[in-house]
Nucleic acid binder design. Structure first.
Lengths: 135, 135
DNA sequence: TAAAAATGGACTAAAATAGTCGTATATAAA
DNA sequence: TTTATATACGACTATTTTAGTCCATTTTTA
């Protein structure tokens, strides 16, 4: 529990690579997957999501690939997590998420309120940390 | 991702119940599972682990059950998580856990060091928050 | 037009989580 | 001393989530 998913790990590794190695130049998904020997298809999907969220720019065709869409300082960890996991998946307890009805004991649950405090601390931390801090 | 498991949720609900409703008196697993309509067997195992970790006292037989082993202020969230999940399961990235060899890209991974910072913030928070704060 | 690259949906595999079952052990009360 | 009640615990199954694969499509450059 409380683990970052591979999606997040790969996303962070890729963003770091694009920022450092790319440094303005276009980087391909294949280049990154080769370098770190991670699944190309999986990484490709991660990059697609980051592109859709406006975190990176994507370029089709020969010589295509990705560049950062903004400076590393402006890319917050919270954005990356949101882009890759979706809103519902970033809360420590089910009750806080998009679908409270998915929690089987919602109305009887006595800990959701106090746990929101913990949630805010985590959220604040994630929205303060930027990609530049993992370079 | 980043969700607390049901084990943790049930554990916290149970600890709160024992602290508040029990208030020194013995509380049974059945009483709690009935009250919150959660799986008796699952809750029972959670309570067994909490007892083994010295967080609650257990009493066999007729009129048996559980009481807190120490005051709520002294029961930290980190203890509860550790008791219920084990050491290896409380890190945001695989690389930080007990088995670094379980990470397939360990030697090529470029984000484990910066992520340790995030890990410490989370760990500190968990070791500061006590059960009294969720009552 | 061919090659290289991203896009995206459908599918399968693997791992983690949640839940169940059965049996043993201890204790109190009748 | 028997019975009922409660915890202890291992083995098993089911479900859900996560990870990974496959394949066809679109776009662009040379």
């Amino acid at each position: 529990m409380l683990n970052f998913s591979k999606k997040i790990e790969y996303g962070l590794i890729a963003l770091r690579y694009i920022a450092l190695i790319g440094d303005g130049n276009i980087v391909t998904a294949k280049e990154i997957s080769d370098k770190y020997k991670i699944s190309y298809e999986l990484l490709a999907k991660v990059l697609q999501k980051l592109a859709k969220a406006g975190i990176i720019n994507s370029f089709y065709g020969v010589n295509g690939g990705y560049t950062l869409a903004k400076s590393p300082e402006k890319i917050k960890l919270s954005e990356v997590i949101l882009a890759l996991e979706g809103k519902s998946n970033i809360s420590i307890v089910t009750c806080n998420s998009d679908q409270p009805e998915s929690c089987t004991i919602f109305d009887r649950c006595t800990i959701k309120t106090p746990l929101n405090k913990i949630q805010s601390v985590i959220n604040n931390m994630f929205s303060e940390i930027s990609i530049s801090e993992i370079l």
